[in-house]
């Protein structure tokens, strides 16, 4: 217990003394995960939309596929991409292994099914009349899509937040694809893994705190937007 208190105190002083290395790691984490999310959102939204509103062969299969992909361990996704991106792999020519781009690819792969899956549920729950009303009032397909997106924005925002939470705290794929290189591909989760293995609990806890505070802030923000947050609103 004493050790934990001590480590937490050290963690706080590390955070507030503006430890450069620590904040650099935080910066890399956010940069990679935010970009991964931004890249993943538009295609995921379109696909979720197609799944919710389109009628095509394989639609049900795709829905099942993306739900399944949610439970694939991140290490497996990391390993698959590692094999693809390794020099010996089919995409080895790109020389992407152990770069931030590789980490981003991993996180996009992780975020995508979640965005599609939760996004699809949100859009499915949307009133079909929203789409039809938009269309009958002369909206283009894109505009109607954006309108419906806006109508179910809270559900979609939840999808985005859940996905962000998944990728920013994910260690397996980032470790394999980024290689945990200092100043380059060391992000919060891989740094926590490393510091913990070295017995440097203060660093680990400090980084954990950053994640925790961020998760809290995001959720408070979401609830703020959602307003009342109880049934009957």
């Amino acid at each position: 217990m004493e050790a934990l208190v001590q480590a937490s105190q050290d963690a706080l002083s590390l955070l507030f003394s503006g430890d450069k290395e620590l904040w650099e790691i935080v910066g890399i984490s956010f940069q990679v995960s935010l970009l991964a999310l931004i890249i993943a959102i538009p295609p995921a939204l379109l696909l979720a939309f197609a799944l919710a509103y389109g009628q095509f062969v394989g639609r049900r299969f795709l829905i099942a596929l993306f739900s399944t992909m949610l439970s694939v361990p991140t290490v497996v996704i990391g390993l698959t991409l590692y094999v693809l991106l390794s020099r010996q792999g089919p995409l080895g020519e790109w020389r992407l292994l152990f770069t931030q781009t590789a980490m981003m690819l991993g996180q996009i792969t992780l975020a995508f099914p979640m965005l599609v899956s939760i996004g699809h549920s949100a859009l499915q729950a949307a009133d079909r009349r929203a789409w039809e009303t938009a269309r009958t009032l002369g909206a283009s397909r894109l505009r109607a899509l954006l309108t419906v997106t806006y109508e179910v924005r809270f559900g979609l925002l939840a999808a985005v937040l859940a996905s962000f939470g998944r990728i920013i705290s994910e260690v397996g794929a980032s470790m394999m694809l980024g290689g945990n290189i200092l100043h380059h591909t060391r992000n919060i989760p891989t740094a926590i893994a490393l510091e913990t293995s070295k017995g440097e609990f203060a660093q680990g806890i400090a980084l954990g705190l950053v994640l925790l505070v961020m998760a809290l802030a995001l959720n408070v923000l979401l609830h703020h937007f959602q307003g009342k947050g109880y049934v009957g609103s």
Partner: peptide, 22 residues
């Protein structure tokens, strides 16, 4: 729409810049 395209541009340019970094 503008926001979307701006975001796409930003992300694209990032991917490219890291590709150039290669």
């Amino acid at each position: 729409k503008t926001l979307f395209s701006a975001l796409c541009l930003v992300s694209l340019s990032f991917v490219q810049s890291s590709a150039f970094a290669l």
